[in-house]
Design a binder for these strands. Structure first.
Lengths: 136, 136
DNA sequence: ATAATAATTAGGATTTGACCTAAGTATTGC
DNA sequence: GCAATACTTAGGTCAAATCCTAATTATTAT
């Protein structure tokens, strides 16, 4: 079986997020995949929203949901595996906090995308304007 | 049990994705789900990038990929079902173009998230500053 | 009319995702 | 020590996602 080295000691163990690849260039596609995938579930987005107010324990985070705890915890694992949150266990309580760096990857992709299509609209605009001028 | 196999979130109401399209305020979670889900595949993101240059036919879009055509076309369907592209068939050629409105939903969510997170940092900052002042 | 092109339909195989219940392990409070 | 608390592990169901090949339909070119 494959996966992150979770097995050794879950205590205070921070799951190693995937490497981002190039620091200043575009991140590896697989990382962006994971971020968008993690954001595609309403429970997970709601958890991120909750965590942007303050860190919280597993049971605090789970409280609003009728979902069984193991199912909910799996959502937390998805968020952590994809680097959107970090967690630390102290005693029997695991506390989660937001890790906003990876959200930036999603924002960046969308920003690039927006710039590209806006540039295209500009070109189209210029073209249409020229057509209009030429037809006078 | 009626069609609710996965609907554990209190807010999740299944609505036809198209129905909730253009709307002020926060869109239905399911629509945002679909947008992020559509963006979580590298092939689909690449198609969107390609389309931000200009509209293109199915075979033009498929050309760079070694994937079988029916598999590729399914990606196009996912994009269209989630409102990220539109298509039109003329003769035997179907042409796709970008539909950027839905991308804005993703941007908006990320923007709100960032604002929340930054507001929190500000509060923390103010708090720490106050501690420092008080300790003088 | 026939052949080539563009896309679609039909029907799998396999994997991943999102839930569940039941039982287990540490930690902490009394 | 014993019970409650806070997760964690194990194992299972069911649906959806992602790929495939083969065959088909519709359109255009020769």
């Amino acid at each position: 079986m494959e996966g992150d080295a979770h097995g050794a000691n879950p205590e205070t163990q921070i799951v190693t997020p995937q490497a981002t690849g190039t620091q200043q260039g575009h991140p590896r596609a697989a990382v962006v995949d994971g971020v968008f995938r993690a954001l595609s579930d309403p429970t997970r987005r709601a958890v991120l929203e909750r965590l942007s107010a303050s860190p919280a324990s597993v049971s605090e985070l789970a409280a609003p949901y009728k979902m069984a705890l193991p199912s909910f915890v799996e959502h937390l694992r998805v968020l952590e595996r994809n680097g959107l949150v970090r967690s630390r266990k102290v005693g029997r309580v695991r506390t989660y906090q937001l890790a906003p760096e990876r959200l930036k990857l999603a924002e960046d992709w969308l920003g690039r995308q927006r710039r590209m299509w806006e540039r295209r609209l500009d070109r189209l605009d210029a073209y249409l304007l020229k057509m209009k001028e030429d037809s006078k």
